[in-house]
């Protein structure tokens, strides 16, 4: 007999037992391991995806911040440009102003220098002219130049032109007061007397109180001050016009 029914029954039981054992020791652990690994991989993928999403969000945030910073930078640059332009304009105005002031200062300095030089030229010319003239007159004609100049001044006071006479009379508007006669040289008493008489006639205001002063800077001239008016008769004024014409 090929079939032993006890063996058949035993093999059925054996098979069932083997199936249960393998389910316990093989299929279930392997299935759980595979499922666990799949779950782990899925979790890691989900975590990676979450990290990726976070990275995208962070990236978007950084990009937004970058755009804002760019916009802010542009605003600041524009403001800085405006401020710089304003500052530049202000500085340029100040520079122009300072330049203009410097130019005026230089012009003034130049004019002052020119005046000084003119004055020096005038003074030197007067001194030279007078020195030469006096020496020439003394050496060649035995004449006293200063005495002649004073005499000529007295003649002028005695017979002034219409214009000078009107000018002289304006000196007396406030009434005759102290009259000062300044000369570069000392006047003899006769010359002082002649001067007093000439002035009395000219001013036509009664006796005039005279005082005499010596001023060497007048060189060889005469200067009379009545009130606040001054009558000059010396070479300085004469040469002043010449020097002005020459320099300009």
């Amino acid at each position: 007999m090929l079939i032993d029914w006890f063996t058949v029954a035993a093999q059925v039981v054996n098979f069932i037992i083997l199936a249960l054992l393998l389910r316990r020791f093989l299929y279930r652990p392997v299935a759980e391991a595979i499922a666990g690994r799949k779950k782990k991989i899925a979790d890691e993928l989900a975590a990676a995806d979450a990290v990726r999403q976070d990275a995208f969000r962070v990236k978007a945030s950084y990009e937004e911040n970058y755009r804002q910073l760019e916009a802010r930078r542009e605003e600041l640059l524009a403001a800085a440009r405006q401020e710089a332009d304003a500052e530049k304009a202000l500085l340029m105005a100040e520079v122009r102003k300072e330049t203009e002031e410097e130019r005026h200062r230089l012009v003034r300095a130049f004019r002052d220098d020119r005046e000084l030089i003119r004055h020096q030229i005038s003074r030197m010319a007067r001194e030279e002219v007078f020195s030469i003239a006096r020496k020439a007159l003394t050496d060649l004609a035995s004449l006293d130049l200063e005495a002649y100049i004073f005499d000529e001044f007295l003649k002028h006071l005695g017979a002034p032109g219409a214009l000078q006479e009107q000018q002289y009379r304006q000196m007396l508007v406030a009434g005759p007061q102290a009259v000062v006669v300044r000369t570069a040289f000392g006047l003899a008493p006769a010359q002082q007397k002649a001067a007093s008489e000439a002035l009395t006639r000219l001013l036509d205001a009664g006796p005039v109180t005279l005082s005499f002063e010596i001023r060497p800077e007048l060189i060889c001239g005469v200067e009379i001050q009545v009130n606040h008016h001054r009558l000059e008769w010396h070479i300085s004024g004469y040469l002043h016009e010449i020097a002005t014409i020459d320099i300009d």
Binding site: L21, L22, F25, P29, V30, E32, A33, G36, K39, K40
Partner: peptide, 15 residues
């Protein structure tokens, strides 16, 4: 079969 399965799967773990 059971022994081999047990030996292999006794320390099995997803990690």
């Amino acid at each position: 079969l059971t022994g081999i399965s047990w030996l292999i799967t006794r320390n099995i773990h997803p990690d």
